[in-house]
Structure formats: structure tokens, C-alpha cells
Design a protein around this nucleic acid. Structure first.
Lengths: 277, 277
DNA sequence: CGAGGATACTTTACGTCATAAGGAGTTGTG
DNA sequence: CACAACTCCTTATGACGTAAAGTATCCTCG
């Protein structure tokens, strides 16, 4: 529920995100730290995973570590920063960019699938306000991986930025939709499908003129065939395909695009020597 | 900051969203209502517009109407539902779908620009958790408009769903990025550009190995030429072009679409005459 | 070794939040 | 005119983030 305290100094997060100097422990008095930023971030993720974003309070995180809420403030400036850290950490460890290959479509598809899965494993991430590019190392690594996968397509910098943004947002958005329908279903103890039909039934009841007011939506919806999971997967798959077609079309000399390239001029180099760290 | 209380009965919102039967006022005792759902929603939007999402409390909304917080509960079940109503109302009045035309690219571009502008006029919308398709009338109308604009492209239902999702998420995501950089700049009383350079300077300081760790990102960033507004606009424009190229590519060549689709002969997607926001 | 200061953590407290419960005033219908 | 329905208020509850101040622990320096 709570997601982001607007003015939380992004600067304070930055230092922590990038592994605030581990401080040579020599020459420091006082009791040894019993906690660590890492442990706190892990506990926070555990709380959010287990009990949902609404249950993520400083008290809850502290409790999970056998401490009070205030103990956390020794390590972390506040809740907003903790959220930043959690979000970035939850993105860590995604597969690195594969070596550049002709089949950039497969590479980008794999990247998108991994990110999608990650979001669904930590649905609370989707409730962290995205009005906030935190620029943590894991997020940037994921973006670098996308750039690496996308590289062989040979986009110019402008379209490349656009494509990266479009891809990321698409994955996040579709993951959010899936997560929401799962959550709603789990909450009401009902299967996805039942929930959807109940929902549309209620809608039809409240807006009897629905089909005439929204003919295209009605047509689109009635075109659905399988259970909602399948529909979500299909949306993900086909939406991604549309995006990739766009990338292929925007690329000057794309490999497997069905579109004949008319402009041979290769624009400013987008580092094709992606050796992927 | 607060964005969405997870379990708020979406059902309760639905009735309100769809204009809960205006109740024939005859045969009702008690004092006449001094407020209305509409007035409350307007006040909520005014508060959020003027003072930001963090300042949106039931007290603040009530105060703006000369009432206490509790007075609102006569009209609205709770804050989550009020947020739903605000969000949908803020989407109302977007331009309707134009008559089907050959130039579906222009139509979709206009649609995207209008939605983008709307988000930027009410930045708090971007902090409402999107993990929640509220299915209000305005949102559905906007989606119907997109479907109308997209129609002449002649997509099959699957790709159409994917494209709709991709387009919507893209607009929302890029709007969020723009809103965030504006907010950050306004907060610190600094121009967009200064804020960005300060940010990158700080990043470079914290992660001196940045260029070697993120070569592609570094290359992409250094390829930027203008002030950030221009970069944002360019991302929007080129990203949208990529998406539209994808739509064109996913459409059946030119055969059974109601209108012969424009062949995507363009190479770099930047050529499109997007008039943008 | 013992004092002093730094550090980890706790207790307590404050202000704010959403909202439950109950009461007061207002208005229509019997 | 009584009563019921209704709006709106006051008050109260429990949770939240976190400021302030206290306590216990440990290192360093005299």
C-alpha cells in the first residue's frame, strides 16, 4: 500500500545502493553491529514476499530480525530508502546479456521472460512507484543486458532508447496485470477464470449498454478462447512480438525482418562489441 | 506516497465508477446531502494536483469541502475507492476515436499524445498502483478509442491485445519518467539539466568503474545531445514509432484489412511525422 | 587498568493516518 | 407530532514513520 515517500532524498539511497564503502571496521568503538544493510534488505523482501506490500512496515522488518523498528535506522535512513534497496536487490541476478548473436529476437525474448518472471516472483515490486528511476546497480545491469541483447539489431541511439523504454514498460505492465488477476483470485479463494467471469458479469449488470458503448472492446473480449492465464501469456507473447517487429522495422539492415531495408546508412555505433560482463 | 490499500473491494468501486444509480430522491427523509461523490472526487483531484499525492488524505479532501474527513464516508466507502474514482475521472474526456482512416499511425499517435499529456497534467495518476485495472468507464473509453484508432491496421485479436497493452504501458511509463524528472527538478529548484548532470556526477563518483561495467549504457547516454526535455520527447517519439512499426509489421500485408495498410517502407522509425505532446 | 567516547539498540513519545462507533441535528413520512 | 432516515460531527482506536533520549556494550587512549 504505502509505496514511496515523495521527497526521500534519492541521494541517500544512491550511496547505499552502490555499496556504501564497507568501512574498515578497525578503530571503531561500540558494540559490534548485529545487523547489516543486507540483512535488513533481505528481511524486507521476505516480509513483502510473504505478507504483501501492505504488511511491510519498519516494525515488521525489525521483528523478523529480532529487533525493534528503530534498530533499523542505524543502517538505513528511512523506509523510502529501504524500498529502493529492496527493489534493486530483487532485480539482482537476472541472466546477463548473451554473446551478441544474429538471433537478437531470441535474446530479447529471453530477457523479457526473465524480467517478467522476476516481477511475478516479487509482485510487490509492481507496487513500488515507477515514477522513480532509482538507478541501482541491479537495475542498470538489467538494462545493460537488454542493450546487449538488442545490440545486434543495430538501432540508432534515438530509437534504441525508445525501444528499451517500450520493452521495459511493456514487461512491467503485463506483469502487473497478471499479478493483479492472480492476487484477486487468491484473495477471493476463487480460480482466475471464475473471478474474471464474475467481474464481467458484474460489469454487464452495472452497464447494460456495454456492448453498444464499447463495441470494439466487446468484440476483442469475446474473441478470447482459453482460461485467463493463457490469455495473459498470449498477450505477453504477441505484444512482445509486435515490439520486436517494430525493432526489426526500425533497424537499418535487420536480419530476419520481413521488411526490406531501404536505408543502408548505419547510424552512430551502439557499441556492437558487447562482451557482456 | 500512499497508493493503494491492497484488498479494497474492487466491487464496491465498480458500482460507484459506473454511476451508482442516482437514486430517485423522492421518499427519502433526512437532511439533504450537502456533498456528492462527484464533488468529493473533484476535491480529491484538486488536492492531488495542487499538493501532490503525499498530501492526499481524507482530512485534506474533507477540509477542501468544508467538512471533516468522516463526512466523506457517507458517499465513498474508503480512500482506496476514492482513488479509483479519481483515477478514472482524470482520464475522462480524452478525444474519442477518430473515424477509421487510412492513416492509423496518425490516429494512434494522436491518441498516445493525448494520454501522455493527461498523465503529465495529473502526475499523481502515475503513482496510483497500476497493479489494478479498475475498469472504470473513462479508462474503458480511452481503450475503446485506441482500439478504434488501431482498427484499420487490421491486427488479429491476439496481436491486437498485445499491441494495446504495449502502447498503453509505453505511454504510461514514459510519462512517469518525464514526470519524475520534472518533479525532481522542481523540488530542488534546479533545472532539469542541472539535476541530471548532478545525478550522473554523483553516480560516477560512487561507481568509478561505471563505464567499464556498463559500456552500452555509457555509450547510449553519451549519445544524448540536447536538454533532457528533448531527450524525453525523443524517447517518446521514437519509441512510439518503433511500436507502430511493429503494428504495421504484424498486420496482414495489405490484403484483408478493411483498408489497405500503409506499407512500412520506412527504415529508421524517426521519420514519422509525430506531432507529439 | 580505568575513564571517556563512540556505537547498537531500546523505550518512549509525537503527530498523522484511515476509519470504527456513537451521538447530534435535520428532514421527510406516518 | 412522533418516528425513522439521513448527514455530519466528535471521539476513540490502533497502526504507522520516526524523533529524542536513555541504556548497554565495546574500543581506544591515558
Amino acid at each position: 500500500m504505502v509505496v514511496y515517500a515523495g521527497q526521500g532524498d534519492a541521494h541517500r539511497s544512491l550511496a547505499l545502493l552502490w555499496g556504501a564503502a564497507p568501512e574498515p571496521r578497525t578503530g571503531r568503538s561500540g558494540p559490534k553491529p548485529g545487523l547489516s544493510v543486507d540483512a535488513i534488505v533481505s528481511a524486507g523482501i521476505a516480509v513483502a514476499d510473504d505478507e504483501g506490500m501492505a504488511a511491510l512496515s519498519m516494525r515488521a522488518v525489525g521483528e523478523r530480525l529480532g529487533r525493534t523498528a528503530m534498530a533499523l535506522y542505524t543502517y538505513v535512513p528511512g523506509k523510502a530508502e529501504l524500498l529502493d534497496l529492496m527493489h534493486d536487490r530483487a532485480l539482482a541476478g537476472l541472466p546477463a546479456a548473451p554473446p551478441p548473436s544474429d538471433d537478437w529476437r531470441a535474446a530479447v525474448t529471453a530477457w523479457a521472460g526473465a524480467l517478467y518472471d522476476r516481477y511475478l516472483r516479487h509482485p510487490w515490486m509492481l507496487q513500488v512507484s515507477q515514477a522513480r528511476p532509482v538507478l541501482g546497480p541491479a537495475e542498470l545491469t538489467a538494462m545493460e543486458a537488454l542493450l546487449g541483447a538488442l545490440g545486434p539489431a543495430g538501432l540508432a541511439p534515438g530509437p534504441l532508447r525508445g525501444a528499451v523504454s517500450a520493452l521495459w514498460q511493456f514487461v512491467r505492465g503485463t506483469a502487473a496485470a497478471t499479478a493483479e488477476s492472480r492476487a484477486a483470485a487468491a484473495e477471493t479463494g476463487v480460480t482466475d477464470e471464475d473471478w474474471w467471469t464474475a467481474r464481467s458479469a458484474r460489469l454487464a449488470e452495472l452497464a447494460p449498454d456495454f456492448p453498444s458503448r464499447f463495441p470494439l472492446l466487446t468484440a476483442l473480449q469475446s474473441g478470447a478462447d482459453g482460461p485467463p492465464q493463457d490469455r495473459e501469456q498470449e498477450t505477453f507473447r504477441t505484444g512482445l512480438a509486435v515490439l520486436l517487429d517494430g525493432v526489426a522495422a526500425a533497424a537499418p539492415a535487420a536480419g530476419d525482418a520481413p521488411v526490406p531495408a531501404t536505408r543502408p546508412g548505419r547510424a552512430a555505433g551502439t557499441g556492437e562489441g558487447a562482451d557482456t560482463p
